[in-house]
């Protein structure tokens, strides 16, 4: 079962197209990364999933139904633009958002205290938001998003503005919730977080999907690269697209930067070396990082002009 499904969704703001004929599904469970550069259409898509915005065309389904505020707290949302009522205390804030999503006061208070304790804010529950640091206020907002124990957690750029310690806390929370059975969808343009957390990814560029799949499939989008130290020139080996000598030879041994042809397999190359008695001192495979994949896929898409226009409204 998919917890989020988009089918041919387009969203236009006057003459600007923020999301262009987007279709994808997020299966239940796990962590789903929603990646893209600034202005790629991530926030607009998430706002449509929450019924804050309505699509110009296409359909969306959230937990098997049309998007809407169902009042059952099944969806938790942390927006990119953070803000809280400054005069409310941390505890009141979390309770308020819990109650807006249909919780009773008692349940909301109990859950709010647990979450604030989990985020090391137990001593600040009665402190007004305006008296909290920015990082504390962000954790209060995260608690407000999680207070109902939602099945689907949507986090829009959750790591922005957090210091490394709090980023680690947030990563732990995301992993905990996913382990407990919730589906976490989060958008980011910082690939390190996605690399550490995501089971599946979707890359957006200019409102269009450029990739969807798991991390291995994403990395497979780039040719495999290797570093070899060999006596002979490896350019003639099967599957090698290019080989670049790295400096002068030392005692007859030269370092080579190898790029395999698309679809080339490092294991097959090693087998060929062994079979041909091709002497090797070093055989290092470089796994492509998501950052490189992102630059490769999104960079190409960004360089392609579209009829959509230039600037973003609410991407």
């Amino acid at each position: 079962m998919s917890v989020l499904r988009l089918d041919g969704v387009t969203k236009r703001f006057e003459n600007f197209t923020a999301v262009d004929n987007l279709s994808f599904e997020v299966p239940e469970g796990g962590i789903f990364g929603f990646l893209g550069a600034n202005g790629a259409g991530k926030t607009t898509t998430l706002r449509m999933a929450l019924d804050i915005l309505r699509p110009t065309s296409g359909t969306l389904e959230v937990l098997g139904a049309a998007p809407g505020r169902r009042g059952d707290g099944e969806v938790g949302f942390l927006p990119e633009e953070r803000g809280l009522y400054r005069q409310m205390t941390a505890l009141e804030t979390v309770i308020y958002f819990g109650r807006l999503k249909g919780m009773s006061r008692g349940d909301a208070e109990s859950a709010a205290r647990g979450l604030l304790d989990r985020f090391s804010l137990a001593a600040f529950t009665d402190r007004k938001v305006e008296q909290l640091s920015k990082g504390m206020a962000q954790k209060v907002q995260l608690a407000a998003a999680l207070v109902t124990g939602p099945r689907l957690i949507i986090l829009d750029e959750p790591f922005s503005g957090l210091d490394p310690v709090n980023q680690a806390v947030l990563e732990d929370v995301v992993l905990e919730r996913a382990k407990a059975g919730a589906t976490v969808v989060f958008s980011t343009h910082v690939m390190q977080h996605a690399e550490r957390l995501c089971d599946r990814l979707l890359l957006l560029a200019k409102g269009r999907k450029v990739f969807q799949g798991d991390q291995e499939a994403a990395r497979a989008q780039l040719p495999t690269r290797l570093t070899l130290t060999a006596r002979a020139d490896p350019r003639k080996l099967p599957g090698v697209q290019s080989a670049q000598a790295q400096g002068a030879a030392r005692d007859g041994w030269t370092d080579w930067a190898i790029t395999l042809a698309p679809g080339g397999d490092a294991g097959a190359l090693l087998e060929a070396c062994t079979g041909k008695g091709f002497a090797l001192r070093r055989f290092d495979i470089h796994r492509a990082s998501l950052h490189e994949v992102f630059l490769h896929l999104v960079g190409d898409a960004e360089a392609t002009p579209t009829k959509s226009g230039q600037a973003g409204v609410a991407a």
């Binding site: 929450l50 804050i52 927006p79 803000g83």
Partner: peptide
């Protein structure tokens, strides 16, 4: 205060 998005969710 960028509050509206949270409330409108």
């Amino acid at each position: 205060n960028k509050l509206l998005e949270s409330v409108l969710a």
